[in-house]
Design a protein around this nucleic acid. Structure first.
Lengths: 343, 343
DNA sequence: AAGCATTAAGTTACCCGTAACGTTAGGCCC
DNA sequence: GGGCCTAACGTTACGGGTAACTTAATGCTT
């Protein structure tokens, strides 16, 4: 029989108020430093707060419907890719500095996982959402629209975002790389990446790459999209597979630097000379690149800054400050030494 | 006058119930599939749920005090270190598969940041907490104890955890490395790492390392603890600093692989021969190691698994299943080719 | 001293979902 | 046909905090 429902282990505001001999409301005002109480009352309440070890229950505050919650949902495809862990660090550091918390969601590049996660996170009434990528399921889009919370879509530059967007033009970055490689004299190019069920940023890069290569007089002799994770190993075996096909290929562009390193290692193991016999180009500019003997030709993207900007846009939106709806974070080609220099 | 407080944008259960012409309670029962309603009523309610796009408000459910919340606070020092992003991925994947969400906290290796974060996260009534490291501030420890939520401390093996713990014995791993290096014939060893305000796992590794070296007839000629991040760059410049001191050093042990790569690159740039003239040993076994021409001598730790085990312990505790309080995840020495082989 | 403004409280209602309990209608049995 | 049972649904209260309103006490003015 004994009151089963009264098991909330924490000390409540009511208990603090009772101990201090004031009403809940007065205690609430003191805790929020709202004013409307005497110094004596404030000290008394604060002393009881310390004595009892009172921790406010934010659920109740948000639930009361006045203020928004302080957490922001952040969806990221995976953390195995260093690029995304840097973006996440940029986001969380910035949000954390302004009293917000990150609720993480790893979608593993699938819209189903993203939709499921969005549904769950929205039921917690988050202050906002930061989503990686511009492609969401129809139901997810509906829920996002209906929720009314601020949303920042990152990674892809998106001229018509759900709400706000920060990223880079992946097509252009692939195009620039393609132009760079063809102008360096490579003719028969290859691509090694991974495939997912839906179009994504890497797809856009590949499209831009192909367009530039064809426009530059070269050919994309072979594209390989493996059903696997975009890691070193996949780069290694993907390269083996690509070259085993027998077609002459003098330069390979990879989905990211991790795969490019794997590929580089494979061509080394076959005794091929880089960059004379074969060129290797990655994307993303991993930090380790700068301390390895051979600098990887790659595309630098300010990952950490991307995360920070995303968080700043979110914070500005939460403060009801004016925010530009889209921001281009840019990219920069790193010549490196794994492709021939343009003379 | 107009009801200012009724601005909660979502559709509430009451609205669903009204639309279906039933009471809130009946709608609630249908949504929880609790039984006690006719098929006709169930279909009617579910149709209205779809029509109105109702999303349950979990805040209210948790607030009502019946069920616990579904999120788990996870504190991680930083994500720049690949090791920790892998641990986090292991945790979130496992938690996510069981309907839980990760609330992230990056402590940047400081107890103050951790304490602040713990305070905030506890106010959201999390289902549990996973904390990196065994050292917490006094106030943090008090709050954790008082909260009564399940806690898993990871990274350091901890024989007397606050609640549960999974990790490895860092002292032993440093000891094993020290013994390995001395038995390989190195005499004058150096160490390059970073320092933080408090003792941590890296400190324990260094202690074990020193003990083994001294016991093995060698000497730790110089230890360098930089006030900086443990990255490639720090490894590069730290090595420069270490060797500039002039003391003869024939082998360097680093806080982690990233620093070791930086150091390796520095000694290459000076024309030193690895491993003949100088040995280089890291810790953590970064994935990239396995595809680089030269395999780094390192200590392998199952990072991803560590995260998964931590999540499993948490989940078991939440299900009130029996859980062992501590688990040793182990480590394994990777001989590599950056130190001389023991003959 | 009466009138009015200001400060420092207390009271009430509400947020949304659920436990506990109450009610109604119909079926079944003897 | 009266008593009893049960399925199906409604009513009430509650949790922790806060907005909006009310009340009490104090200070100040003329």
């Amino acid at each position: 029989m004994a009151g089963k429902r009264h098991k909330t282990n924490g000390v409540s505001l009511r208990e603090v108020a009772k101990a201090a001999g004031v009403s809940k409301m007065t205690a609430s005002r003191v805790l929020r430093a709202e004013g409307g109480y005497s110094d004596k009352t404030r000290d008394l309440v604060m002393r009881k707060v310390d004595e009892l070890g009172y921790l406010p229950n934010r659920l109740a505050t948000v639930f009361a419907g006045d203020s928004a919650s302080t957490f922001v949902g952040v969806s990221i495809p995976e953390l195995g890719n260093e690029v995304f862990s840097q973006v996440l660090e940029g986001i969380d550091r910035k949000l954390g500095a302004f009293g917000h918390q990150t609720v993480l969601g790893l979608t593993q590049h699938t819209q189903e996982a993203e939709e499921e996660w969005i549904k769950t996170v929205l039921s917690w009434k988050p202050a906002g959402l930061i989503l990686t990528g511009r492609y969401h399921s129809i139901r997810a889009t509906e829920m996002l629209r209906a929720s009314g919370v601020p949303i920042v879509e990152i990674w892809d530059l998106n001229s018509s975002p759900l709400d706000m967007s920060v990223g880079l033009n992946h097509f252009d970055s692939g195009f620039d790389m393609g132009r760079y490689l063809t102008s360096a004299g490579y003719q028969a190019l290859g691509y090694v990446g991974t495939s997912h069920d839906t179009a994504n940023a890497a797809t856009a890069r590949l499209e831009g790459f192909c367009k530039a290569v064809e426009g530059g007089g070269g050919t994309v002799a072979k594209q390989l999209c493996l059903h696997d994770m975009a890691t070193y190993y996949t780069g290694f075996y993907g390269t083996e597979q690509l070259l085993a096909a027998g077609e002459p290929i003098d330069c390979i562009f990879y989905q990211n630097d991790a795969m490019a390193f794997g590929g580089l290692q494979y061509v080394y193991s076959k005794g091929l000379c880089v960059p004379q016999e074969i060129g290797i180009a990655g994307w993303g500019d991993l930090p380790i690149t700068s301390v390895l003997p051979m600098r990887m030709t790659s595309m630098h993207v300010p990952h950490f800054k991307l995360g920070q900007v995303a968080a700043e846009m979110m914070l500005a939106s939460l403060q009801c400050e004016p925010v530009e709806r889209t921001r281009d974070i840019g990219f920069k080609l790193i010549p490196g030494s794994t492709v021939r220099q343009t003379c």
